[in-house]
Design a protein around this nucleic acid. Structure first.
Lengths: 308, 308
DNA sequence: CTTGATAATACCTTAAAGGTATAAATCAGG
DNA sequence: CCTGATTTATACCTTTAAGGTATTATCAAG
């Protein structure tokens, strides 16, 4: 049996006439007669009664007509869905996120992607940097968001933004009134840092900056993530250095002040990572959304800078 | 797209290797590679990633694999169901019955058919003789049960049995004690006859028998069917002549006594009728059951006759 | 760098789908 | 009852495309 024969059968059943059906199918009448005969031979069932005016369905033919329509429509659906999957419009995308990264940028990107590709089911996984890399290699995830990545041979990354450093202070602290805090002003001040876990991380960046500026860093606590760090500031444990994008988080008695007197490379990047040889349309689609987001971010930045 | 290509695709997806799949399909590797390529071209979707060890499904390919399995199973089901329909094991059979015919023979036949062809949905219609013939011609029914049929050019019939005549009498009537009533004993006695409706019918047979025997028939009532007729006997309206198969019906105060002194042709047949050019397997199957029933009936009759 | 395995390409053979011409069957109208 | 129109079926040829063989290209492992 053959899809062609099924289509032919449906045409003949609908026209109740082989000649007319042949015209509709843009073939001549004899081959169509023959295909119907072959179908009947294969099924060993008479599908049509031949009359003087044409043909009419037997009861078995009637049943087969219903089935045929189901088959054809299922095939059509399969083609359409597969093509959509091929364009990345359908499927499942496993995305890894990490602690403070979910504060603003990642939700924005995911929201855009969901709008552009509503047929894609996004599944989020909380994973550390090392876990993300292992999960990528095992194909348990397709994309991961992270910061401060060391280059790897099998993994590509796209930088989304670079955060400047900011200081979280209690608003009753003397420095809290200043519009800008210089790094030197934090000399020997108690500082909460994060995260614990795989190196290089945000702590390493902060340490390097302090060291290069010749400022002594008094680490009172090392905590798991930015949220905990800022909570400790609120609790009076001292200062906390954060990437500027974490400053969307509001906690009682905590103020965020830009940090000055830093080298240009004192930034912490947010990137998304993915397997170098993953050419899946879903990933491509996702990266396209990321790039679009990035370019709009730059536009906006340069535009507001121009106005200043 | 082609069912062959779908089968090939599934084989390759399952083997994760074109060469192995080719062996399983009893073809050589190059044509299989080409068919997969053609499928991908047609769908404009990459279904496999080619690796050194074979191939592996893309996410679109994974989706198409699911769809393909659905399609193949639907096709298989369609073939099977159509073949069953072709053998008369599946479908719907519309059967017309009439008043007194449903008393014993028809239910027996229908029960046998339902047991032998449980997949067939039997739909019963109460119809008079004329209605049955019209419904047959319009294909609203496929079989009808009836009595005393005049031959028609487009309708065939199979006789199922021939009922002898019996008399229904009140049990307080003087004749009720006799084992056999002679026709002559009914001379000028009040008689209830049935049915009203299309001729020739049971009344005509009864009239002819009386006339040939030179017995005067005093018709007090003409009613619609045997049940009503017997009910009137119970109510004291007189005698009622019935086909013997109607004697299964028990009413208070009514006794059935065989009628003697009749010619051999004083019988009323029960037949089933159907369109001469209806070659549907459902009808054939039904008629086969009818014939089987008939032959068992004859066996039983001749056997019990031999014992007497 | 070679070897072994895999898929892809080139080219040929063969099976089967489609076309043309024509026959056989059936019905309507004279 | 015949004739013409209409329909499906048959016979035979052409063309398309599926399958086969030989070979090449690619890549991972030794």
């Amino acid at each position: 049996m053959d899809i062609r024969q099924i289509r032919y059968f449906v045409a003949v059943a609908e026209e109740r006439n082989i000649g007319r059906a042949a015209k509709r199918l843009f073939i001549s009448q004899p081959p169509l007669s023959r295909q119907i005969q072959q179908l009947e031979d294969e099924l060993q069932v008479k599908l049509f009664e031949r009359t003087a005016k044409g043909v009419e369905l037997t009861s078995a033919g009637q049943l087969f007509l219903n089935e045929s329509r189901n088959i054809l429509s299922l095939i059509e659906q399969a083609q359409e869905r597969t093509q959509r999957a091929g364009k990345g419009q359908l499927g499942r995308l496993d995305v890894a996120i990490f602690g403070s990264g979910i504060l603003n940028t990642i939700p924005d990107i995911l929201k855009r992607f969901k709008t552009a590709y509503p047929g894609v089911n996004i599944v989020l996984h909380q994973m550390s940097k090392a876990e993300q890399i292992e999960a990528l290699r095992q194909k348990r995830i397709s994309v991961g968001f992270n910061r401060l990545l060391a280059p790897l041979p099998d993994i590509d990354s796209t930088m989304i933004l670079q955060d400047k450093l900011m200081v979280a202070v209690r608003d009753d602290h003397p420095l809290a009134t200043k519009p800008l805090i210089n790094l030197k002003e934090l000399d020997n001040e108690p500082i909460v840092v994060f995260p614990k876990g795989a190196r290089p991380n945000f702590v390493d960046l902060v340490s390097r900056v302090f060291q290069e500026a010749g400022v002594t860093m008094d680490i009172t606590q090392t905590v798991i993530d930015a949220v905990t760090g800022i909570a400790l500031v609120s609790g009076g444990f001292g200062f906390c250095l954060i990437p500027s994008s974490a400053s969307v988080l509001q906690l009682p008695g905590v103020k965020y002040i830009p940090l000055g007197g830093l080298p240009d490379n004192a930034t912490v990047d947010l990137s998304c990572i993915y397997l170098k040889d993953d050419h899946s349309p879903l990933l491509s689609a996702f990266l396209a959304v990321v790039h679009e987001y990035k370019s709009q971010l730059n536009h906006h930045t340069s535009f507001s800078a121009a106005r200043e």
